[in-house]
Write a protein that binds this DNA or RNA. Structure first.
Lengths: 202, 202
DNA sequence: GCGAAAGCGGACCGGGCGGTCAACTTGGTA
DNA sequence: TACCAAGTTGACCGCCCGGTCCGCTTTCGC
């Protein structure tokens, strides 16, 4: 369908995505296109040749990151202890976020259809991980894949509130939250699990 | 020291703070001063008469909200079951956040000395609540007040990721996290508690 | 009721943003 | 090697932002 990119264009696209991810991680959503272009060593106009709007650029970054998580999750589905697999998945997700925190980009790009599609795929993978762990008695009966999808980002978020915190403080809060997911000593939950409509997250 | 505000000025200040809180809750940090002024029914110049910068306005809002939490916490220190008191405190904090989510303002104003002072006071109150709950065996031995200070906002944050979620979904995630804080079935934590230096949070 | 001080408001400013464009350079192909 | 489509570039545009300023209005002690 679409002819392959010219060699220089492909190189610039890679540079651009890397620079954008770094810049967003450092400056948040309001990182400017001009700064991103400068960091990538390309002209501002080139950015808009590759991505029509800033939102499209953000969506491309999110797409890449979520794909990685899906691959990780699918791989873990076929391996070892189900409880360990789920925990390992959460650790990988947290490590990705720790390296570069781009969580705010997910919200900023959820309107994009490709992003919402890939997020649905991620949710399916997490559902499978949780189902397997639940069947194995590694997590309590009353939690769902959606719960984990939502809780996934919490450890980094919590650790991020500490100013000069050590880089792997998230491990502490992941452990606490995961203890809350175990069957031992679980108290009944006061609110039913949400069900996010999978087709469209409006 | 400073003479009291004129009647109209005091009224406008109240209108302004209320409008700003609403506007920030709806539009996030990038809510504009012009919109806030319009919502309050006052001129843009008047905003800057009351608060020299946008940051000062944000700090004033945060100050008010944190004071409320401190009062709540101090009150709960003298009442009933220590474990219930801590849980109740977290519920009140989450309700405040659910009504208007201004958590992003805390980060934006932490440079302000008044804000960091009042946050230190809040941390002291939470420390006391946690110490009492721990002594009573309501929470595990290896968590600290600082842990709770950081975890406090997590339930709303997690629930906020669900698009059309019911308004009190946070209760579900607070329950899960609180189960993770209980002594029953606790697994050892892989990372020590952080200690935020209280005098300055740089 | 009057005058001075306090408060008010909106036109205005400099700057930075996302996005456009037309002149220019480059890569692949016949 | 010569050509042209694809790609690049930075000056430029309109917009909106936080913040200023000064002529006007309101409050309140006397």
């Amino acid at each position: 369908m679409t002819r392959p990119l010219r060699a220089d264009a492909a190189r610039n696209r890679r540079l651009l995505l890397a620079a954008a991810a770094d810049e967003f991680a450092e400056r948040g959503l309001e990182a400017s296109i001009a700064d991103i272009a400068r960091r990538a060593g390309i002209g501002k106009g080139t950015v808009f040749r590759h991505f029509a709007t800033k939102e499209d650029l953000i969506a491309a970054i999110v797409l890449d990151r979520v794909e990685v998580l899906i691959e990780t999750g699918d791989h873990l589905l076929g391996a070892g202890d189900p409880g360990e697999a789920l925990l390992k998945f959460l650790e990988v997700a947290a490590e990705q976020r720790q390296e570069r925190d781009l969580s705010f980009l997910h919200g900023a790009s959820s309107a994009n259809t490709q992003v919402s599609q890939v997020q649905d795929r991620l949710r399916a993978t997490i559902d499978a991980l949780v189902d397997r762990a639940r069947d194995h008695g590694a997590v309590r009966d009353d939690i769902t894949g959606t719960d984990l999808f939502l809780l996934m980002c919490a450890p980094n978020y919590v650790a991020g509130y500490a100013p000069g915190a050590p880089p792997d403080l998230w491990r502490r809060y992941l452990a606490i939250i995961f203890d809350g997911l175990r069957p031992q000593g679980a108290h009944p939950l006061p609110h039913p699990a949400p069900d996010l409509l999978p087709e469209t997250n409006v």
